[in-house]
Simulated scan of single mutants.
Amino acid sequence: MTAVDYFITGDHDSARNVLAAALRSQGFEVATSPLGGWSVTRGSVSATVWLGAFAGKSNQRLEYQMQFFDYEGQLVARLNRTNGAGAMGGVIGVSRSADVFTELDQAVGSELTRLGLLANVTHHP
């Protein structure tokens, strides 16, 4: 699993709104998961099943997770990518999933930094 922890200052609800907007700006849908985190998805399952990596970057089904923690009063948002993310697209799909995850990390980090909310970030291999 690959993950990024964003340590966020300020109001937690406002920070969640900023995070959701940053994820959506990259074409992802955000849905609340049963444990209170988010399911972050983009693309078509059927296109990916039928076409694999040929579904293209915007149509390949990609699924990531966002979890939330409290650390000494700060909101910690953890963006996760499982090792099998993009596997329906074969080797190309897995590679694309990693590339899109990096782009998503940069977009989220840039927006949090721009708004002065990012206290720290930790990347996990």
Rank of each mutant, 00 (worst) to 15 (best):
T48W: 08
T48Y: 08
T48V: 06
V49G: 13
V49M: 13
W50V: 13
W50S: 14
W50R: 12
L51T: 07
L51R: 15
G52W: 09
G52I: 13
G52Y: 10
G52R: 07
G52S: 11
G52E: 14
A53S: 15
A53G: 11
A53D: 07
A53Y: 03
A53L: 04
F54M: 15
F54D: 13
A55H: 12
A55G: 12
A55N: 12
G56M: 08
G56H: 10
G56E: 07
G56I: 09
G56L: 04
K57C: 04
K57D: 07
K57A: 13
K57E: 14
K57Q: 12
K57P: 03
S58N: 15
N59K: 11
N59Y: 03
Q60D: 03
Q60V: 12
Q60N: 08
Q60M: 15
Q60H: 14
R61D: 04
R61V: 02
R61G: 01
L62W: 13
E63Q: 12
E63P: 00
Y64F: 08
Y64A: 01
Q65C: 02
Q65A: 14
Q65T: 07
M66T: 00
M66H: 00
M66N: 00
M66V: 02
Q67G: 04
Q67W: 01
Q67K: 01
F68S: 11
F68T: 08
F68H: 08
F68P: 03
F68Q: 06
F68V: 10
F68W: 05
F68G: 06
F69T: 00
F69V: 00
D70H: 06
D70K: 06
D70S: 13
D70M: 15
D70R: 06
D70P: 10
Y71Q: 09
Y71F: 10
Y71A: 09
E72T: 08
E72I: 02
G73L: 07
G73P: 07
G73I: 10
G73Y: 04
Q74R: 15
Q74F: 10
Q74C: 10
Q74G: 04
L75E: 08
L75P: 07
L75C: 14
V76I: 06
V76E: 01
V76R: 01
V76N: 01
V76H: 00
V76S: 01
A77F: 06
A77D: 11
A77T: 13
R78V: 02
L79F: 11
L79H: 07
L79V: 05
L79G: 04
N80W: 11
N80D: 03
N80Q: 04
R81V: 01
R81Y: 02
R81G: 02
R81K: 13
R81L: 10
T82M: 13
T82W: 08
N83G: 11
N83E: 15
N83W: 05
G84D: 14
A85M: 02
A85L: 04
A85I: 01
A85Q: 05
A85R: 02
A85C: 06
G86I: 05
G86W: 07
G86M: 07
G86D: 03
G86F: 10
G86K: 06
A87R: 03
